[in-house]
């Protein structure tokens, strides 16, 4: 997902008798679905994990602007250009909301940015894949936003108030993102043979990276158990991935496109599709920085940040001067 492999610092979820009175009261509030707010007492590990998770989510939004932003200047019609621009702009907005939510935990946005640029904090693996053709705008909206929604909708109920509120706003604004992607795909498959070929190629390239977005199986992960007990993770990675496959396969069929998986088959017994796992070695390599676009993506963010320093400083300096002038008057 947008936050993958978040370390909770936990060695397993402790039983009720192992918790301090504060921790027990905290867990009881979470179990009662009472939101935790910034000034409330919280375990240090909860705070740290949330900073990691929300920060990673925010970074994914702003790095996620790049593969699509790539095509804004090349969009094929004025309407498509406006739609794509509005969508990529939303991603900047979502990054902004999430950074603000993280800031309520006692870390500044600039600090988070620096951690992204230094490589200390990660962003979602999916954005390290290149967008080669216009059909990729369709595939990204349909598959990547589709996968993100699977995770973001339940997160509206997450235990930390500012995070939950940011997710509510994000989900509301995001409702058109997946639809615009699917609409691009529909135009492509009903277009010329070359367009249809382009659409199939985009699905071929984005299918497995989209499955990777949910992260490796975490049914035995201590971090996952702890995050779920804290309600900052609402479902296991495998649950969400299965739900995504079940929803997406019929959508692909409707388009007349083939999912690039020979072993994909409907399983009557489980009521799910059986499908092939993505290549988890590739996933690890991408997370380590060896994806096709890691260097370009991080490079673009660092360039924007460093190139914008004089602009931010100039405006800050003026504000300070103006305040002094007002005070003197």
């Amino acid at each position: 997902m947008y936050a993958q492999n978040v370390d909770t610092g936990s060695k397993g979820v402790r039983g009720a008798d192992e918790l301090s009175p504060e921790e027990a009261a905290f867990q009881a509030r979470i179990d009662d679905n009472i939101k935790i707010e910034p000034k409330d007492w919280m375990p240090a590990a909860y705070r740290k994990t949330l900073i990691r998770q929300i920060g990673q989510h925010a970074h994914s939004e702003i790095v996620g602007q790049l593969p699509e932003g790539n095509w804004v200047t090349r969009a094929p019609t004025l309407e498509r250009k406006a739609i794509l621009l509005a969508k990529v702009q939303d991603e900047a907005g979502h990054g902004l909301y999430l950074y603000c939510a993280a800031e309520t935990l006692g870390i500044s946005r600039d600090e988070l940015m620096n951690k992204l640029h230094s490589g200390e904090m990660k962003y979602s693996s999916i954005f390290n894949y290149p967008t080669l053709t216009w059909a990729d705008m369709g595939a990204v909206g349909w598959l990547v936003d589709g996968a993100a929604i699977m995770n973001q909708v339940p997160l509206q109920r997450t235990s930390f108030g500012p995070y939950a509120r940011a997710m509510v706003r994000i989900c509301k604004e995001e409702s058109f993102h997946q639809r615009q992607g699917y609409s691009i795909m529909m135009s492509m498959v009903s277009g010329t043979p070359a367009q249809k070929e382009m659409a199939q190629d985009a699905l071929n390239r984005f299918w497995y990276p989209a499955l990777m977005m949910f992260g490796p199986s975490d049914k035995d992960s201590v971090h996952s158990d702890q995050s779920m007990a804290w309600k900052i993770k609402m479902n296991t990675n495998d649950e969400l991935r299965q739900r995504f496959v079940n929803e997406t396969v019929p959508q692909a069929h409707y388009l007349g496109l083939t999912i690039p998986d020979d072993d994909l088959v409907w399983n009557e017994e489980t009521g799910n599709y059986d499908f092939s796992q993505p290549d988890w070695d590739e996933f690890k390599a991408v997370l380590k920085g060896n994806g096709p676009c890691n260097r370009e993506r991080l490079g673009a963010r660092i360039k924007a940040w460093e190139g914008g320093e004089w602009f931010r400083d100039g405006l800050a300096a003026y504000a300070e001067k103006a305040a002094k002038r007002r005070a003197a008057a």
């Binding site: 603000c100 931010r312 800050a316 103006a322």
Partner: peptide, 19 residues
């Protein structure tokens, strides 16, 4: 409705209009 960063109040209002 949320928060944002800005160098001063006037710019915060403009940024809020945009964001």
């Amino acid at each position: 409705v949320g928060s944002l960063h800005a160098p001063d109040a006037e710019m915060a209002i403009n940024n809020a209009r945009d964001v």
